[in-house]
Amino acid sequence: MADSGMQSWKSLALGCAMTEPGTSKRFNTGDWRSRRRPVTDREACIKCGRCYILCPDMCYAPDPKAEGFYNWDSFYCKGCGICIVECPKDAISWQEEKEEDKYGPACGS
């Protein structure tokens, strides 16, 4: 386990309370992904939006540059594979990913 995200017990708020809002935005669930990531083939995509709706970590967001398509977010995608199962056109598939590439730019953006 890396030291990142750790802090001294003396610096914790009383009762380990969270004293500022929206901190889960900084929670890098992408760190849980192991050796593979989902990749969308936009040729096969029919823009149904199921990946957008069903990803439990809300990793797909509408692509502002290409209407109907969705961008993937590497910071939050934990690699559960739900989008791959749910895509009606099998447009999303696994691609190998090296540890060092893990936090690269979000797909499609």
Binding site: M1, S4, Q7, W9, L12, A17, M18
Partner: peptide
């Protein structure tokens, strides 16, 4: 404030 949040392995021991 939020009370009673998850304490991931990076924080549980310190809590």
């Amino acid at each position: 404030i939020s009370m009673g949040l998850v304490g991931v392995p990076e924080i549980y021991t310190e809590a």
